[in-house]
């Protein structure tokens, strides 16, 4: 009742929506980099949005399905194949027992989300299954997936009916998918909206302008903790020390070398660098799918607009969840809707 890792690829971790409530103990939230893709993948297989799944970074992973199950792939596209047959993304796919899922090459984006009906059933630690590598907790024994790992899949919770009679193909995919118009606008060179951070005014005028007018390149040193950007060096009017305080996903900090860091899913709880900006939450999925080496540009919006965008995206996501459940019901895979 599981999935076996044949090759982990660059990095794959088990994530749910994160570990909240323990920030005051220095315990980070973790969770998916692209929460839009995470939630959608879960809905597509009849799961709750907070069930655990596998976040696959970049191409190269290969897993063996030890039983038949519904799966869904969302997020970045690394040309997934099941026993050599291309698998469509953003839709429920029923996978035969014994088939092998491989990611054969990066086409777009940076992270794929692999959800399975019933969720990944590793033990919860402090209320979450998310992998927290530094603390060695959550996910698969507190670490990234390795070759030979046997990933337990929840049995009791799967809500989707299995097809019958069973076909002979490695998989059956439904005929519909989450339309591209409903997904985040992933882009190789995105424009990311930001709100001024509390220390924006501490930077000199040239740096304030540069932040909004220049391209920034995502360096290869970027990871789940933060995106390190390369571009014009952002300088303070005068050097000063800041007192560490709370930070969150999307906070743009500038260390003394002047090169900004956008904090991502594995950010620490506190940060001591000046915060020049905060990425609009609605644009975080796009940022999370932008690859190292790509360039991006920032565009300034106001706090109220960022809040409106965030609420609109939340409402669209709820509608999407409803639409997916309706489709699953129409197809006869889902008996009841919540």
């Amino acid at each position: 009742m599981s999935i076996t890792v044949i090759k982990p690829g660059l990095m794959a971790t088990i994530q749910d929506l994160g570990r909240s409530g323990y920030g005051k103990y220095g315990i980070i939230v973790s969770g998916p980099m692209d929460r839009f893709a995470h939630r959608t993948a879960n809905w597509l297989v009849g799961n709750g949005e907070g069930d655990a799944l596998i976040e696959v970074t970049w191409s190269g992973m290969s897993v063996h399905m030890e039983r038949e199950m519904w799966v869904a792939l969302t997020g970045g596209d690394f040309s997934p194949q099941l026993d050599g047959v291309p698998v469509p993304m953003w839709r429920p796919v029923f996978v035969r027992r014994g088939s092998t899922l491989t990611f054969t090459g990066p086409k777009s984006g940076c992270r794929t989300y692999l959800a399975v009906a019933g969720g990944i059933d590793v033990p919860e630690v402090l209320g979450s299954r998310s992998t927290y590598i530094r603390a060695g907790i959550g996910g698969m024994k507190g670490r990234a997936l390795r070759k030979g790992d046997i990933i337990p899949v929840g049995t009791g919770k799967g809500r989707l009916r299995h097809p019958s009679p069973r076909g002979t193909q490695p998989f059956d995919a439904v005929r519909w998918a989450v339309p591209a118009s409903e997904r985040p606008a992933y882009h190789e060179h995105p424009c990311i909206r930001i709100v001024r951070g509390p220390q924006f005014g501490d930077f000199d005028e040239g740096s304030q302008l540069a932040l909004l007018q220049h391209d920034f390149r995502i360096t290869p040193q970027s990871d789940r903790m933060g995106y390190r950007l390369e571009g014009p060096r952002l300088q303070l009017h005068r050097p000063q020390e800041y007192i560490s305080e709370g930070v969150t996903i999307g906070t743009v900090q500038v260390p003394s070398d002047g090169l900004p860091i956008v904090l991502m899913a594995d950010r620490q709880t506190l940060g001591g660098y000046p915060k020049i900006a905060q990425v609009a939450g609605a644009d975080l999925p796009v940022l999370a799918q932008t690859r190292p080496g790509s360039t991006l540009r920032f565009k300034e919006i106001g706090q109220t607009e960022a809040e409106q965008l965030w609420m609109e995206q939340g409402i669209r996501l709820r509608q999407l969840a409803r639409m997916i459940a309706l489709k699953l019901k129409e197809d006869g895979w889902l008996d009841r809707m919540d």
Binding site: S20, I243, E245, T248, T269, Q303, E307
Partner: peptide, 29 residues
């Protein structure tokens, strides 16, 4: 959701969808 206290600050996390927002109030912040 939670508080993260530090040296001179308290960072307060909340779920903007769960706020009991008065009708006339537009900005959640």
């Amino acid at each position: 959701v939670e508080c993260v206290p530090a040296f001179t600050t308290v960072t307060v996390f909340y779920d903007p969808f769960e706020l009991d927002l008065p009708l006339h109030e537009t900005g959640r912040f």
